[in-house]
């Protein structure tokens, strides 16, 4: 994985610090071109991996990348699925079965070998595979070497102790997409233990890691202990603690945790992108 991964929260009005900032972002990134421009600015400073949710607007970005193959030679996307709010809202509005019907394309469900929805009810692994395929459709023809499960789903499965689901996911991503599975979580130590318990070794785990201990469940100390002692491939996110930390202070802290393989961050301006990337290169070489 590259040292620096470019995130997408800023494009979709996700601010963990301010609802007002969210609205400003929604206004600024109304057009897909405004997103593409920022991605191109990040590419100019050498950031060639875009880690993004399976938000419906990402499919337009994918269309653009496919239409400009030469320009995006070597460009990688790390999809993160599912886009949680899409599903959570759908469950509220349509119920579980209604949600499955809505998000698995009719032809996929209809052609499902052993009889559509009735069969899905009993075969959750096939259902999971169908949902993964439905989410992955938009990335066809694009290099997606790591495919992540989003934190809401990861942490739900983790809390319910349905750990074998991770094993099935791991297996399917490797087999079907020839890619490395990744896991986003707000509970990194517990997630590491869970994956170890089902024999998933050296996993890619993306979690909040910041000097403030923000969204580091159980506290910063246990995170630091796992980062020092356990064998996995950590990605640090929320490194600025939703903007509460200054970039220099934030990245300097990460520099003390040498096992961190990559840093995920998003920004909207070229200056911010460049500044953060240079800090990462300076302190985390």
């Amino acid at each position: 994985m590259d040292k620096v991964l470019f995130g997408d929260n800023q494009f979709f009005a996700v601010s963990h610090m301010s609802d007002e900032k969210s609205r400003q972002q929604a206004i600024r990134f109304k057009d897909d071109n405004s997103i593409i421009n920022v991605l191109d600015q990040a590419r100019c400073v050498g950031i060639n991996t875009f880690m993004c949710t399976t938000h419906e607007r990402i499919s337009n970005i994918c269309d653009h990348i496919r239409a400009n193959k030469e320009k995006y030679e070597g460009y990688k996307i790390y999809p993160c699925m599912p886009y949680a709010h899409k599903f959570a809202n759908a469950v509220t509005e349509y119920g579980y079965i209604g949600t499955i019907k809505k998000y698995i394309p009719g032809n996929l469900l209809g052609s499902f070998a052993k009889g559509g929805l009735a069969f899905v009810r009993k075969d959750f692994i096939s259902l999971m595979e169908l949902l993964v395929d439905a989410e992955m459709k938009m990335f066809k023809g694009i290099d997606t070497p790591v495919i992540f499960l989003q934190n809401v789903l990861v942490d739900l499965i983790l809390g319910l102790k349905m750990i074998t689901v991770f094993k099935e996911y791991d297996h399917y991503i490797r087999k079907r997409y020839n890619a490395e599975p990744g896991y986003i979580t707000m509970n990194m130590p517990a997630m590491y233990d869970a994956l170890s318990s089902v024999g998933i070794n050296n996993p890619i785990i993306c979690s909040s890691i910041n000097k403030l201990g923000f969204r580091m469940s159980g506290g910063k100390e246990i995170y630091e202990k796992y980062l020092a002692e356990k064998q996995f491939r950590p990605i640090a996110m929320q490194v600025l603690a939703a903007g509460a930390l200054k970039p220099k202070e934030a990245i300097e802290y990460l520099g003390k945790l040498p096992r961190i393989e990559s840093v995920l961050f998003g920004a909207s301006s070229r200056n911010h992108i460049q500044e953060t990337k240079e800090l990462i290169e300076k302190y985390m070489a």
Binding site: M17, V152, M186, F214, G219, A242, G243
Partner: peptide
């Protein structure tokens, strides 16, 4: 004042 300074620490985080 931001939630980053005011959030109640928890052992497990979901949503």
């Amino acid at each position: 004042k931001y939630i980053t300074d005011l959030a109640i620490p928890v052992n497990f985080y979901l949503r």
